[in-house]
């Protein structure tokens, strides 16, 4: 410091600047906003000491389960972070992908369709397992023609970011000849298996396919409503119940489905005793796939599993043309 001269922010020692910025940059977004102020701010806000705090603490564990080893050579922590936001990393023998959520730096995972317990998924007349170049995984599940759309999955939460609400999405697309999916008959339940400590959640009733005559957001024409009601009355499955799992806090097994075919007609809402709401419509993801919100759960410390069930109780008619890439778990934004 020159006597009589003025000291600037730029004259402060680097350790002070990093200390100041690390108190401000609580998220990657903060750091990126600061980097546009000036070249001085940019070099400070881009430093490894700022960015390494945004990478998950168990980063090494995740990288070690990666299939590829291309992630070791990065010139900076920021580069590594941004790479992991945009380039899903195949982990656990190709059963999952790992990415980071750009704004918060929290962990996201996608689980491949092959891991889901799809009822009749092993019957080639019902489900096919092709490989698509636009998929992250080597195989996707294609609904060829089945009167049954039903799967469940139990995921662990150990690897998820703590104290975070996660939203589960079904990542899918429809073929040009898809049919049987345009009714709001698919029911989805996402539930933390914590022995009833948290709220039981809701069953979401969704429609995977846009019907020909109207848009997602549009009002239902009166005509359609009537015909839908009439159509439903032909399939009196709704009141049927699943004997075993009705009162028990668990997912019915495939064996139970086979032993008690009446369960095919049950509704998730009845068998779990939770209310049913209309879920949101599918959205374009920007990567050529669609996604639909399946539900959400709060992960505190990663100690509980999460049950995810999807079923269509209107088993009487054929369905076709649904291609499932997998299920994605992403932190809920603006929490």
């Amino acid at each position: 410091m020159e006597q009589g001269g003025t000291t600037d922010l730029f004259d402060l020692p680097e350790c002070c600047i990093v200390d100041i910025l690390s108190r401000i940059c609580t998220s990657p977004r903060d750091a990126c906003r600061l980097s546009v102020v000036s070249s001085f701010f940019r070099s400070a806000a881009d430093s490894d000491s700022i960015w390494e705090r945004f990478l998950p603490f168990d980063m090494q564990l995740i990288l070690s389960s990666s299939v590829s080893h291309s992630l070791l050579n990065f010139s900076s922590k920021k580069e590594q972070f941004l790479h992991l936001c945009d380039n899903p990393l195949l982990i656990d023998n190709g059963t999952k992908t790992f990415t980071l959520e750009k704004c918060s730096g929290k962990k996201c995972f996608m689980i491949r369709a092959k891991e889901l317990c799809i009822v009749w998924g092993d019957r080639p007349m019902d489900w096919n397992w092709p490989s698509l170049p636009e998929s992250r995984f080597s195989e996707v599940a294609e609904l060829v023609d089945s009167c049954l759309l039903d799967f469940h999955y139990k995921t662990e939460t150990r690897l998820l970011s703590p104290n975070t609400t996660y939203v589960v999405y079904l990542v899918f697309k429809l073929t040009a000849l898809a049919y049987g999916l345009e009714n709001e008959s698919v029911q989805i339940l996402v539930k933390l298996a914590d022995g009833g400590r948290s709220e039981q959640g809701v069953v979401r009733r969704v429609r995977l396919q846009r019907s020909v005559e109207r848009k997602w957001e549009g009002e239902l024409p009166e005509e359609t409503k009537v015909s839908k009601r009439r159509w439903r009355s032909k399939f009196p499955f709704r009141g049927w119940r699943l004997p075993l799992s009705r009162q028990e806090d668990r997912v019915p097994t495939i064996l139970e489905y086979i032993r008690y075919p009446s369960s095919w007609g049950t509704t998730l809402s009845r068998s779990w005793g939770v209310p049913m709401v209309t879920g949101s419509n599918p959205k374009e993801r920007g990567d050529g796939w669609m996604e639909i919100e399946m539900g959400e759960f709060f992960n505190e410390r990663g100690e509980y599993g999460v049950d995810i069930i999807l079923m269509d109780p209107t088993t009487g008619h054929g369905k076709s043309g649904l291609i499932i890439q997998g299920m994605e778990l992403r932190p809920k934004v603006n929490q």
């Binding site: 002070c16 100041i20 401000i24 600061l34 546009v36 102020v37 000036s38 701010f41």
Partner: peptide, 24 residues
């Protein structure tokens, strides 16, 4: 350090430039 941080925190890049008399 905390005082300096509080002068930057929650401000837009334009406000920071103005506060600290910085030209891009």
């Amino acid at each position: 350090v905390e005082k300096a941080a509080s002068m930057i925190r929650g401000r837009t890049p334009d406000q920071i430039r103005e506060n600290f008399n910085i030209n891009s």
